[in-house]
Design a binder for these strands. Structure first.
Lengths: 222, 222
DNA sequence: CGTGGTTTTGATCATAATCAACGTCTGTGG
DNA sequence: CCACAGACGTTGATTATGATCAAAACCACG
């Protein structure tokens, strides 16, 4: 959901007080890296980022994609160091929300405090749903879920609901969904053959949204 | 980590103000169900709970197991309704932390506010790690991770680091790890054959902690 | 225009799921 | 206290899904 929908005038007003700094991040550059000191949350203004964990033995797991209106950096709150890395998938711009100031502010303004609890709570629910996808879905269901979720989020930002441009590679999608890039590719091809979508490189056209939803929600009626 | 380690005296003192109510939950009974009105967080005093999401088509995904010292209920913050269900795996007791009072309190006390951000942040990191497990590990690695994580958490509460009693079924473990109950069973058997653990029903004895860690962290040195 | 990263597609393989049978433990009521 | 029912767990045989390996096509970019 866009920030604007979620915050009262009070919140907006107070946010004005702290959103002084912006930062540009070039494609493939990190906004922050695993282990970096945590100082601020970042509100994405333009562009797309990915967040990922990497283990000592080189394994990586993409934990999310953030588009305009999303907030990144929650992973640093607990230990004051970022537990994952955030990388720009295209040239992007973010607003800094210094966390100490957020904390101060949320003492003055109940609305701000409530808003911060809201976004943290939303992140927790988002991750629960990601666990559901990763833990109990077939490859086709994962890809369908991914496309619909992304389309809805873009639509909430005023983009088309049925046309989307993927800023991430098949490999990054696969990592996020717990499958391999070849499987992502094959699944997209299958959806094309079934008339559910069109694919032209990274441009996806959703032809049959209901059909796509039926992939992971086979029998809504019983 | 036990709550006690994390909170200053200030937090403890203030928490005394709101922890008025306790609630007992019998084995297999819900503490709350998906869709229930969200009013409070719950601190587990004794016993063990599981949280799970269930989809309309009956699929279920266990999203976590909570033992003494853990806090449950974050999933309700975002929408004021619980996004998952919490079920007791044995007779348990929880403290109620009414959320509106927590919000009030966190305005008065920076320490309380900070503490709440901490636990929400920790939950987010915990879920990131669960995504890593679900998204990029083999069955053996998942089970090894699960055993070590649980053993460490129990140890932080003063229990033995090497002896644990599983309060959950093989099916619940499997759901949490994104594998089937038969796979959990086979994997445990394999670990026994390799001399890593002993299994007597739900009693697990970790014989070779380093060996168990090596299952999912093959080459610590490089 | 190459050159390198990305994507598609095919063939084969491995891991874990599924199906099935049996064994074991627990709790309950006779 | 024992017998029994039902839940839970183990093990085996087979299958299915997606991984892996490999090659070719495609595109973007310098």
């Amino acid at each position: 959901m866009p920030i604007a929908e979620q915050q009262s005038d009070d919140v907006l007003e107070h946010f004005g007080e702290i959103v002084d700094a912006r930062r540009k991040v070039k494609r493939k550059e990190p906004l922050f890296l695993n282990g970096d000191q945590f100082t601020a949350l970042y509100a994405v203004r333009t562009g797309v980022l990915k967040t990922q964990i990497t283990t000592s033995d080189g394994r990586a797991q993409v934990t999310g994609f953030q588009i305009a209106g999303d907030i990144v950096g929650f992973d640093g709150i607990a230990s004051q160091r970022h537990a994952c890395s955030a990388i720009a998938l295209e040239d992007s711009e973010v607003c800094l929300l210094p966390f100490d100031r957020l904390e101060q502010l949320s003492r003055k303004s109940p609305a701000v405090q409530h808003y911060i609890y809201q976004i943290l709570g939303r992140e927790i629910v988002r991750e629960h749903l990601a666990m559901l996808t990763l833990g109990s879905m077939l490859a086709e269901e994962r890809v369908a879920t991914f496309l619909i979720d992304l389309a809805e989020r873009l639509h909430a930002r005023g983009f088309s609901r049925f046309e989307l441009v993927l800023r991430m590679t098949r490999e990054e999608i696969g990592s996020y969904l717990g499958i391999k890039l070849e499987t992502v590719s094959r699944t997209l091809t299958k959806f094309v053959e079934e008339g559910l979508i069109n694919v032209r490189q990274r441009h996806i056209l959703i032809l049959d949204p209901a059909g796509l939803e039926r992939v992971y929600n086979p029998q809504a009626i019983r």
